[in-house]
Design a protein around this nucleic acid. Structure first.
Length: 945
RNA sequence: GCUCGAAUGGUGGAAUCGGUAGACACGAAGGACUUAAAAUCCUUUGGCUAUUGCAGCUGUGCGGGUUCAAGUCCCGCUUCGAGUACCA
């Protein structure tokens, strides 16, 4: 009987579906939660890169199940997103329809690969039953503030109660800006004013922020959706714009997000990326008075030790201080400058880093020296970081240095022996000099001379705090997440606006607020988001339902929010929903959450390091504060699978002809390389007939062959349609079967490494499966299996395999376990092993990797239950124990010969045998022995004089 | 610029605690079976020198170091990849 993968895979897939083999429920077994990053169902379908991580997690899930765990391994779709909407704008096709079609296609492809997902738990972020809980979480965030003392989110009502008793006195909470008011002032505020004040503290809040506005996409983007001034999706220019947007106060959680990294098992590089993104920076805030005025402003610096080197100050152009500090005679110049910077896009700012700036006309007084220093305005200072104002120390900051040189401002070096004639000395090291000696200035008795930079920073911090000049401050680079998108295809906000134009949350029991129908997916003529097209998009507070917009009267009917939520809204808590996907009373039932707790193993790409993986951790910590979930971190262990790149093939056309020359002959001609569809190339050999049929212009193509073949060139590029290098998993499954695809994807190399897709080795893996099949059937049609006792060699082979594979799976080293399978099958083949005991163990061990063939063989061996209900075999060291050990005998580190010696031989005896062996004589001749090192069971190194 | 990671045959990659580098696979070469092809099986395969001497030398990006012993540890570079960037 031949290995007929097509029949086998069809048969067992149908069986698994019909019998719900992979259905999982809470039970008394220990749990294990394995999660894949769910895909965005794009129109192109899955390519071979997508399943890489899914196969890896599937292997682990099946392995854990065989080890007796109750494994939760779900799959779903991140169904909201821009491409479906862009497609809708172009074609008028409703995103819901395209999304549904794409999901169906994805599902069909996923089904072929033999994953053990419990599809009863499938979720889609665009499903109202799902996004109900996204909206619900948003309402909870709106109704919470972050208390820095308790270090958790608390109900906003607590804060309002506090204000009515003690105002803002002694407040230590996360906020957009620091407000000061008394209880009397609070109590005297209007309802609207109170709402505005509370907005300053809510975790989900409406804020006027500088946003990344992408005119081409017509929407605001989060920081992680922008790179180098271009949108990640589409690559359109992004500009800075002040807009009123929904934001999430992620920054309140910065410290916890940072500390939490120490408690989870992620790769160092990913943790490092998150640390950089959070960007904790310890520094000092110092107040500077403005000369001839009672104004003062605060700057942030990490180099407090350089106070004596300040020669000017710089404000960000957007700083609210600018209009206050500009003098009459400088007003024109400043206005011109502000105008100019406003017009420059982020992209231009990055690409040409010219030094620009303008003098404000005002001076600040250095509190340490009493010196007056000019206040400048320049766009190299960012409004959004620190206080939007800096003290410039050109000697020790390269940006300040460039500015000082350009505008001819003084430079005062403060480190002994540093040379600042050509460039600044930025390193935080060296011995401080040039601070005045005590008594020289009446302003300051701080002497830093002779201290190291580190000591000087500490001393200055202490001085600043004790003299009331400022305070020690920790800044984070992590910003609040902008949560509004001016798009259609996303979760609607459960928000309406009252007569004061203040946002009000819908009652939780009315959720979900369904996404309305619109006839156009573009912004409205008045520039409103697409939801402005909806006929029914107002809220009746008496009837608690959506009604037509023309009924808005601001008495009982109010307009609903027109923006929708961003992509990360739906993906931030999806792992929780899988635990209890059908629950309509809670996001997740408390007991069920306590059972599944959090994700034990999460597999996905690094591209989510600063997006999804930050938001998810934030979202989870918020729910943790509310007592909804029981674990402070959502993903215990995280593995980043590498990207599968495309491997493009080229043909070489001789210039101005329709003749193509084979790769190794191309240098003899003048040729143009042309991408050729990799699906008509096999092992870099072109299928000439298929090529001729590929495009009309190639019908008459002629070829210069080598050895009768046309050899194509190749290059590693991104897998994309335009490079004709997209390989679809279905094609591989059709040709070789899913088991081969699974094994081959794992065999390609280490899971975490990026690698090009290259089918050149796939035959080897397929041959291996055929050979394994051959152990059961040989060349005939009858099962060869017998119940005889396995021999010692057979035992050794299989136990060696079990040991290796167990170790490898635990370490995600799947490529080496597949090598181990190949070795074992070759050994058993050589031994003509047909012992049930051994073959059963082999089948169970390979089941996680190649589930279809394992299931078939398992049943062939006479089992009724499926192979997933088998037990992972334990290896027994007694079969692996050796009587003799192979010693490598080396002289001065160079191995000369080998010796088989009993394992239990003492070191002294081994040494004696090695030295007295006849082969040793040649190397020992005329030399003195200085030292002999014996490593048990491994090596004897004889060091000669 | 900063941070992190990597570099091993013709190719993808092994080498788990510092202990015989190149497992396993692909490709290539030769052979068996076959009328032939496919499939399958066997042999060789880092380089150099020998192969009518069974062996010798060399070898993990480069230069040093530690060690009886270094792909592995330390110092200094080079190249490539990833992330991030006027963050004060």
């Amino acid at each position: 009987m031949e290995y007929n993968f097509r029949d086998i895979e069809k048969k067992w897939h149908d069986y698994w579906v019909a019998n719900k083999i992979y259905k999982v429920e809470k039970n008394e077994k220990p749990k294990f939660y394995v999660l894949d990053m769910f895909p965005y169902p794009s129109g192109a379908g899955l390519h071979v890169g997508h399943p890489l991580g899914y196969i890896a997690s599937d292997i682990y899930s099946r392995y854990k199940r065989l080890q007796g765990y109750n494994v939760l391994h779900p799959m779903g779709y991140d169904a909201y997103g821009l491409p479906a909407e862009q497609y809708a704008i172009q074609t008028g096709q409703h995103p819901e329809i395209t999304t549904k079609n794409n999901i169906a296609r994805y599902r069909e492809q996923l089904d072929k690969i033999g994953f053990c997902y419990d599809w009863d738990r499938e979720i889609r972020t665009c499903d109202p039953a799902y996004y109900k809980w996204t909206q619900w979480a948003f309402i909870r965030m709106f109704n919470s503030y972050y208390c820095n003392d308790k270090n958790q989110a608390r109900p906003i009502k607590e804060l309002a109660d506090r204000f009515s008793v003690s105002g803002s006195e002694g407040l230590n909470v996360a906020c957009s800006e620091e407000l000061h008011f008394t209880a009397e002032e609070w109590n005297a505020m209007s309802g609207k004013k109170k709402q505005e004040v509370l907005m300053n503290y809510r975790i989900a809040y409406l804020g006027d922020t500088m946003v990344n506005w992408c005119p081409k996409l017509g929407t605001v983007l989060a920081n992680d959706e922008v790179s180098e001034g271009l949108s990640i999706r589409g690559g359109y220019p992004v500009e800075q714009k002040m807009m009123r947007q929904w934001c999430l106060r992620v920054s309140a959680y910065a410290q916890r997000l940072l500390e939490g990294l120490d408690t989870i098992d992620w790769t160092d590089s990913l943790k490092e990326t998150q640390r950089n993104w959070i960007g904790r920076s310890e520094g000092t805030e110092v107040q500077f008075k403005v000369k001839d005025s009672d104004m003062s402003f605060t700057i942030f610096t990490t180099r407090a030790d350089t106070m004596f080197g300040v020669t000017f100050m710089v404000l960000a152009p957007e700083s609210e201080l600018v209009p206050l500090l500009v003098t009459a005679e400088q007003k024109k110049a400043v206005d011109e400058y502000l105008d100019r910077t406003k017009k420059r896009t982020e992209r231009e700012r990055i690409s040409d880093r010219q030094v620009t700036g303008v003098f404000s006309g005002s001076y600040a007084i250095n509190p340490f020296t009493g010196d007056s220093v000019p206040i400048w305005i320049s766009d190299y200072v960012l409004a959004g970081y620190g206080t939007g104002a800096i003290m410039a120390v050109p000697a020790h900051d390269s940006r300040d240095y460039a500015f000082a040189k350009h505008f001819n401002l003084p430079i005062i070096p403060l480190i002994e022996g540093c040379d600042v004639s050509e460039e600044s000395f930025d390193a935080k090291e060296g011995i401080v000099c040039n601070s005045p000696k005590t008594g020289v200035t009446p302003y300051c008795d701080l002497v830093l001379n002779g201290l190291t930079v580190k000591e000087a920073i500490a001393a200055t911090k202490k001085y600043v705090e004790s003299h009331g000049l400022g305070r020690v401050k920790v800044n984070y680079r992590l910003r609040d997440a902008i949560f509004s998108r001016q798009r259609y295809w996303g979760e609607p906000f459960p928000v309406y606006y009252d007569a004061d134009n203040m946002p009000q949350m819908l009652p939780e029991e009315t959720l979900p607020l369904l996404l309305p129908e619109v006839n156009k997916f573009l912004p409205t003529e008045t520039g409103e988001p697409p939801l402005g097209h909806a006929l029914k998009w107002a809220w009746d507070v008496e009837e608690n339902r959506v009604v037509e917009t023309d009924k808005v009267d601001y008495k009982t009917v109010f307009p609903l929010e027109l923006c929708t939520m961003p992509g990360f809204a739906g993906s931030s808590a999806y792992y929780l929903r899988y635990m209890d996907p059908k629950n309509d009373k809670a996001l997740v039932d408390e007991d069920i959450d306590k059972y599944w707790r959090n994700v034990d193993l999460y597999i996905g790409g690094t591209e989510h390091a600063t997006g999804h993986l930050i938001y998810s951790r934030f979202w989870n910590k918020f729910l943790y504060d509310l007592g909804i979930v029981c674990e402070p971190e959502p993903f215990k262990k995280l593995i980043n699978q590498g990207m599968i790149q495309g491997r493009s093939n080229f043909v070489y056309r001789i210039k101005d002809t329709n003749t193509f020359v084979s790769y190794n002959l191309k240098n003899q001609y003048e040729v143009t390389p042309i991408h050729v569809d990799v699906n008509i190339v096999s092992n870099d050999i072109l299928d000439i007939e298929a090529f001729k049929a590929w495009r009309p212009e190639y019908h008459t193509a002629e070829f210069v062959l080598e050895d009768g073949k046309y050899v194509c060139g190749w290059a590693v590029e991104k897998m994309s349609k335009s490079m004709f290098n997209v390989v679809n998993p279905d094609v591989i499954v059709e040709k070789y079967g899913a088991d081969t695809l699974r094994l081959y994807e794992m065999f390609l190399g280490p899971l975490e490494q990026s690698k090009p897709w290259d089918t050149n080795g796939i035959d080897g893996v397929h041959r291996f499966l055929k050979r394994m099949w051959g152990l059961f059937y040989g060349n005939g049609d009858t099962l060869l299996v017998t119940d005889q006792e396995p021999t010692a060699d057979e035992q050794k082979s299989i136990h060696k395999l079990i040991k290796k594979v167990t170790y490898d799976i635990e370490h995600f080293s799947y490529n080496t376990s597949i090598s181990a399978f190949m070795i074992c099958v070759n050994e058993l083949g050589g031994l003509k092993c047909n012992k049930r005991d051994v073959l059963e163990k082999l089948v169970v061990t390979i089941a996680p990797f190649a589930p279809f063939i394992a299931e078939e063989l398992w049943h062939q061996l006479g089992h009724d239950s499926t192979v997933c209900d088998a037990q992972w075999p334990k290896y027994d060291d007694k079969y692996l124990a050796e009587n003799t050990a192979n010693y490598a005998i080396s002289f001065n580190g160079k191995v000369r010969f080998n010796l088989e010696l009993p394992v239990d031989m003492s070191k002294e005896e081994v040494e004696k045998v090695a030295l007295s062996h006849e082969n040793s004589a040649k190397w020992l001749e005329g030399k003195t022995i200085r030292k002999v090192i014996v490593v048990p069971k491994k090596i004897v190194n004889i060091v000669l004089g």
